[in-house]
Structures are given as C-alpha cells and as structure tokens.
Simulated assay, not measured.
Amino acid sequence: MNDALSPPPLAAPAAKPASGPQGAGAHIIAVTSGKGGVGKTFISANLAAALTRRGLRVLVLDADLGLANLDVVLNLHPKVTLHEVFTGKATLDEAIVQAPGGFSALLAGSGMVEYSRLTPEVRNQFIQVIDTIRPRYDVILLDTGAGISDVVLFSVSLAHEVLLVATPEPTSLTDAYAAIKVLCTQQKRQHVRLVINQTARPGDGRAITSQLQQVLERFVKTDSGRPVRLIHMGDIPADPSVREAIMRRQLLLQLLPGCPAALAMLQLAGKIEATLPGAAAPK
C-alpha cells in the first residue's frame, strides 16, 4: 500500500461541490469501493432495508451506469430504468420501483456502452434526477461503480458522505487506499467512512482502518495540511448466510435476520442514522 501503487491523478470531474448538494432534502451517501467484488451492492441493498426499518424514507440509486446489478441482488425485473428516463421514453416516476425491504429503488440499465463515458448530457441528466428525487426521501444511497473512473468520481461528488466498502484482502486495501487518496486530493474530502466486509475476527476492521490511516498520514497531503480522517463504521463478518442470500437473490435481513452479518448490518444502519442531519446526539 505504498504511494507507488497509487494511480496517476485524474482530472477532477466538473460536478457539484464534494460537500454535496445544498438545500433541503435527502442526505446522499455514496456507497463505493476501490475494487469490485467486495460486496458493495449487497451492503447498499441491506443497508437500505435496515434504515427503512428505522423509519426512514430510503431510495437506492444504481449509479453504476452501464454495469448495473442492483436489480439482480433484489430479484427485480424492471421494464423501465434510468436509460429510458434519460432517453425520454419514460418518466422518472415510472422508473422508481418498490424493492423488497420497503425502500425504493431506481435501477440502471446493464450493458449500456454509452454510459461508460461521462458526457455532458449524462452528467446533466443525472444531476436533474438527483435534484428531482431529493425532496421525497430522508436518505439516498448511491450504489456507485468500483474504482476511480470519471463516472464513479462524478457520482461520488454528488454525495454528502462517502461510505467506502473494503475487505481485508491486500488487493482490496491497496485499491481502497488509491480511491481514498483521489477523494481527498481531488474532491477535498475531509473524512471518509469505512465498512470492512468479510472480516474473520472482531476488531479486524478497526485495525485495518488504523493501518490505512497511518499510510494516508505518511503519503497523502491535503490543501489544509491535515490528513483525511477515516471513520470506522463497522465490520460485516464473514458469514455463509451471505452467500445463501445472494444465491437466492434475497435480502439477508429478510432471509436470515438473526445471522451475524444481518445483525452487523443493523448496527451499521444505527451508526449511519446517527450521522444524519438533525439526528439526536447519542446518549
């Protein structure tokens, strides 16, 4: 995880400030990762269900334009996606569907090559969608793609907060470091929240967060002179129930609500709720 492993800087995407959109409406959280295959979409979906159980109005937006798979995780077969909205073939209201778990979902099309590049048209349409749905919800989770492409960085730039998902594997941690570096240097993020998935032992995630923090303090300098602060939000333990839920295309919180990973998701939701604007201070 040394600095030589990090990729060269990309041009910062022209988007809204990294502090997120202004005005009243949903708190937007980008769920992202440096590497694919770490459980990001699985966590987005189950976190949405857990937040909904806490009485919040939640929408998950599949921001992985072109390689969407939120519909697979939720076992949904949408006739209308963001592709139809962007092309004027359907309205935004027609594209928002009710997902298992009681939250709303806005799904993207899969295999759409035209969304692999961030064009001005896609950028403006995406911003318009966000601005339209924000007043309707308390929380919007942006399930972004993995990595640091311009499409991913643009999606993340629209969020108030970043929840980065990583696993204890060295490749995941190296890519997480690279993603965090880009977020703090290009988007001027002062902090990034981490959830460590597939941990083997209690305390693994906190130790990993501490190690990443030390590397960032050594190699990454921000404009303020202060290192980006990593906030450990919790661990999702390695649990065979997760694979069973994925294979059945069901939410873990519905299929096996008492398993260790599901209980960890509920704890994560509680911590996320405590960070929302207007949340009561913990006693």
Rank of each mutant, 00 (worst) to 15 (best):
109 G>A: 14
152 V>P: 04
52 T>Q: 10
111 G>L: 10
226 R>E: 15
14 A>W: 03
111 G>R: 08
170 P>T: 03
46 N>F: 13
143 D>W: 01
74 L>N: 02
5 L>R: 11
160 H>M: 03
68 A>K: 03
27 H>F: 04
6 S>M: 13
27 H>Y: 09
185 T>K: 05
145 G>K: 11
171 T>G: 03
102 G>T: 06
115 Y>N: 03
197 N>Q: 06
107 L>P: 01
199 T>A: 04
12 A>V: 12
94 E>M: 14
132 T>M: 09
248 R>S: 14
57 R>A: 12
82 L>N: 06
213 Q>Y: 01
150 D>L: 11
72 V>Q: 00
133 I>K: 03
206 R>K: 09
256 L>N: 15
280 A>E: 15
198 Q>C: 14
95 A>R: 00
271 K>Q: 15
196 I>E: 05
9 P>Q: 10
94 E>D: 09
20 G>F: 00
4 A>K: 15
244 E>C: 06
1 M>T: 11
246 I>Y: 01
248 R>G: 09
158 L>N: 04
85 V>Q: 06
128 Q>T: 15
51 L>R: 08
149 S>P: 06
121 E>C: 07
190 Q>D: 13
117 R>C: 08
161 E>A: 02
151 V>C: 09
153 L>N: 13
11 A>S: 08
262 A>G: 13
55 G>F: 09
95 A>V: 02
90 A>D: 08
20 G>S: 03
150 D>W: 09
239 D>T: 13
5 L>P: 05
31 V>I: 11
31 V>K: 08
168 P>R: 01
68 A>E: 02
94 E>K: 12
264 A>I: 07
118 L>S: 01
69 N>H: 04
118 L>T: 05
283 K>C: 08
112 M>E: 15
25 G>N: 07
100 P>G: 06
262 A>P: 13
226 R>L: 14
236 I>V: 12
192 V>I: 13
97 V>Q: 13
160 H>E: 00
18 A>T: 11
127 I>G: 01
49 A>V: 15
60 V>L: 10
34 G>K: 00
196 I>Q: 00
111 G>F: 09
253 L>I: 14
262 A>L: 02
159 A>E: 10
52 T>P: 03
10 L>R: 12
146 A>L: 06
73 V>N: 00
125 Q>C: 12
76 L>K: 05
283 K>N: 12
101 G>T: 05
103 F>L: 02
224 S>H: 03
279 A>Y: 09
262 A>T: 13
268 L>H: 08
139 V>C: 03
84 E>C: 12
213 Q>P: 02
231 I>S: 06
86 F>R: 00
131 D>K: 01
